[in-house]
Amino acid sequence: MTVLERNRTSRGRALVGAALAVIGTAALTASYAYQSNAVSIVTQFRVSDFLLKSTVPATGAPPPSRAVIERAIEADPLNQSIFNTAMMQIGRRGSNVLPAETWFTTLGHYGWRSTPALQNLIYYHASRNNIGRVLDVADALFRREKRMEEATTVFSLAETDPQLRADVVRRLRASPAWRRPFLLGSNVLTDPAAIEGRYQTLRTLQRTGDRLPEQEMTALLPVLVRVGRTADAFSLWSFGRKGIARPVNDPQFSDAATVINQDDTAKPFNWRLLSGDNFDVTPRGRGAPGVVIHWNGQGVPIFATQQTSGAAGAYKMRVAFDPEDAASAKAVGYRLMCGDARIDLVYVSAPDTTHSDWRTVQPVPCAFPRLEIFGVLTDTRQDITFTLNGIALQRTPS
């Protein structure tokens, strides 16, 4: 067996395991009613004990007779829940003379009407490694908004296999109701294979003409940045997008109002404006560019941050502000971050009353450094109001 075959086998086993987790050992409820004489039977059972074994352990209540089961099916032959319960009960009585394939083929013909039936189907197909059918049933659970966390895990594992990923992409391109909840789920993006699978899914959607909205990338983008794949994150985010400035996007803070939430780390290439006990940062408003910083001079707060698209090297920067704020220009500092490595920009000069010039103290060692705007600690601790109208960051010869 080749390395590729072993990897695919391993992924297949993991996917089957995730599919079986959709059912687990949780007790389910099967119910049906015989309408003509108001017969109603509700039975607790465990799916993982059913059908592939000859009998199902009793739960305390005696199983209904086969005659009652047959009358219930005759009364409502198109009811998937009734057929599912009949299948379970006949199996529990030990009188199941039909092969499992016959039962489950018929059960599948009913469509996607019953969650317990879907869980039976997913167990049946997963135990036989019928991954395509597992995805069909997981899709149905998504559409019914049932067992969505487990169904998300099934699809996430499918994304790690190129052939199965094509199936996932096909389903996503049809814009099912579960598309956005699935793509916004970040709890499955915990290992390199899952991260790469989701990245390739989104790239394939983009390359095949899908207009992938930014919101559907917000689960993946910060994960890519966190694991050192910032270039991939920027490529994904910027694909087909117009009006992106480099290396600092939105240099005049025109769109900063859309990312003002302090907890919003899902849009790393937009401005993230922060607020705290001693300060707040707000967009200027009324369609005007810029942000207004209010700070009481205490602490060393970070006012705003953005993941830039700059390359490694030395930089110079020009900062624009209101003329009445010229005296506060040095109270606000700037630095570029490469992970935990900090490269400060130092004040150079003020060419006029509305601008100040800065430069890096040393070349920036990484691509895509994070720009931070912060408060400079002073002895006076005076209240400061500073209107920041724009930033022009430019790479220079080292």
Rank of each mutant, 00 (worst) to 15 (best):
V259N: 13
P116T: 10
R226M: 04
T153H: 12
A257T: 08
Q298E: 09
P247A: 07
T106G: 02
Q307L: 00
G17W: 03
T282I: 10
Q362N: 10
A193T: 10
M337E: 10
R198N: 00
S10R: 15
R246K: 14
I260G: 14
F253T: 06
Y123R: 12
G94L: 04
R180K: 15
P247H: 05
D277Q: 15
T360R: 09
T190A: 04
G240T: 09
A320D: 14
N120H: 14
K146L: 04
E324Q: 15
T396R: 06
Q298D: 03
F104L: 07
L51G: 12
G310P: 01
D344R: 11
T353C: 00
H294I: 01
V97Y: 10
G333L: 05
L183G: 10
W103E: 06
L189S: 01
I373W: 00
T305Q: 13
N187D: 14
Q298R: 12
P268H: 00
Y34A: 10
Y199C: 01
P77G: 08
T258N: 13
Q206S: 06
G333S: 13
V3D: 11
S10W: 09
G375C: 01
A231K: 01
Q298P: 03
Q252A: 11
E216A: 08
Y32P: 06
A327D: 12
I293H: 01
A311C: 08
K242Y: 08
V361D: 14
V3W: 03
S114V: 04
D383K: 11
F182P: 07
R179F: 00
P323W: 04
V137A: 11
E150I: 00
R93F: 00
L273G: 09
R128S: 06
V300H: 10
Y110Q: 07
A158L: 02
V248K: 06
D383F: 07
N129D: 05
R229A: 04
L28A: 11
R381C: 05
R203Y: 01
L236R: 09
R92W: 09
A126S: 12
L20G: 06
I73M: 09
A219Q: 06
R133W: 03
V227W: 00
D161I: 09
L164C: 04
G297L: 05
M217R: 14
R272Q: 13
V259E: 08
A256C: 07
N130R: 13
R144G: 05
A194Q: 14
P283M: 07
A126C: 03
V47I: 15
E145F: 01
P369S: 01
A327I: 09
S186L: 03
G285H: 01
E149L: 12
M1I: 14
T115Q: 07
A231I: 01
F182D: 03
A367T: 08
P289W: 07
L20N: 13
F239W: 14
M148P: 05
R246T: 15
D210W: 09
A194G: 02
Q35R: 15
D210V: 08
P64F: 05
P363M: 06
Y34K: 13
D264C: 07
Q362T: 13
A311G: 02
Q262I: 13
A19T: 06
D167K: 11
L336N: 09
G313N: 04
L336W: 06
Q262L: 11
T396W: 00
P283I: 09
N130A: 12
V332C: 02
Q262P: 08
D352S: 08
L189W: 04
R246N: 08
V39N: 04
